[in-house]
């Protein structure tokens, strides 16, 4: 589904990603961990097509095609979803209206009939219930004045509505209380399906108690320095990242 090979990315004259190789197959969940500033959000943004990054080397293929030449909206239409580490506020734009525009833009791009207001509202309300999003938030402006946790839930709600093929969740668990964490995890698990894949960026192995990943990768200074299974997260929790750096140095 996703093949990243030898990806080098810079911002200005600073190289942030220094040769990433990662393959994600349908049905898999990959967790990416790593110290602050190691490049996790940068990788997420580059996959979603954000401007301001320069790919200096390497390639990314998605469903067999070159991904890097596509606009952000074309990637979204192809089923890529990014849950933002810092969701953006859009004053005056109704949350439901926004999401309806999003889903219909995607349906239109894929030659499907647009959803009418009635069908959309039915579906959205069901999904809101599923991820425990207060219905009053549906009628507010996108993320405006939402608490930190509400913003993160709103991201998961959008994901549930959009049903992406590949979801990249950048620290969606940060700032959530324990109950919210479980609900968010359920939202992600509900999406798990042999056809879909998830990339979870997180600092806490606790999330991985709820969403059991197939692989765990450690990103450090722009490189994946270690990959392993679920147990790698537990080791990290115990030992921190220091031992990996030492291991890398020797």
């Amino acid at each position: 589904m996703l093949e990243i090979s030898n990806l080098h990315v810079s911002i200005g004259d600073q190289t942030i990603l220094k040769g990433i190789d990662l393959t994600v197959k349908p049905g898999e969940v990959h967790a990416i961990m790593g110290p602050n500033g190691s490049g996790k959000s940068t990788l997420s943004h580059v996959l979603a097509g954000r401007e301001g990054y320069e790919v200096i080397e390497g390639s990314v293929r998605y469903e067999g095609k070159d991904l890097l030449g596509l606009s952000p909206e074309a990637r979204a239409h192809a089923g890529i979803f990014l849950g933002f580490q810092y969701p953006v506020e859009i004053p005056g734009v109704n949350n439901m209206y926004f999401l309806k525009a999003a889903i219909n833009a995607r349906r239109k791009a894929n030659g499907l009939k647009e959803l009418d207001a009635f069908d959309f509202i039915q579906m959205a309300k069901k999904k809101a219930g599923l991820v425990g999003l207060d219905e009053s938030l549906l009628q507010r402006a996108v993320n405006e004045g939402f608490s930190g946790g509400e913003k993160k839930r709103n991201e998961i709600f959008q994901m549930a509505v959009l049903e992406p093929q590949l979801a990249i969740l950048d620290e969606t668990d940060s700032g959530l209380d324990i109950d919210a964490l479980r609900i968010v995890a359920e939202g992600v698990n509900a999406l798990r399906d042999p056809e879909r894949a998830v990339i979870l960026v997180t600092h806490y192995q606790r999330l991985l108690d709820y969403i059991v990943p197939d692989y765990v990768h450690v990103l450090s200074d722009g490189r994946i320095v270690r990959s392993g299974g679920r147990e790698l997260a537990l080791t990290l929790e115990e030992k921190g990242y220091g031992w990996l750096k030492e291991a890398a140095a020797t």
Partner: peptide, 28 residues
Amino acid sequence: GEDQLFYCRQRGISEEDAVSMIVNGFCK
């Protein structure tokens, strides 16, 4: 903001529609 536009586009909304959505929200 570039960040507002990117947020909209990431959800599949074209840049043009995103601008008009943001502006209309501002003028509501």
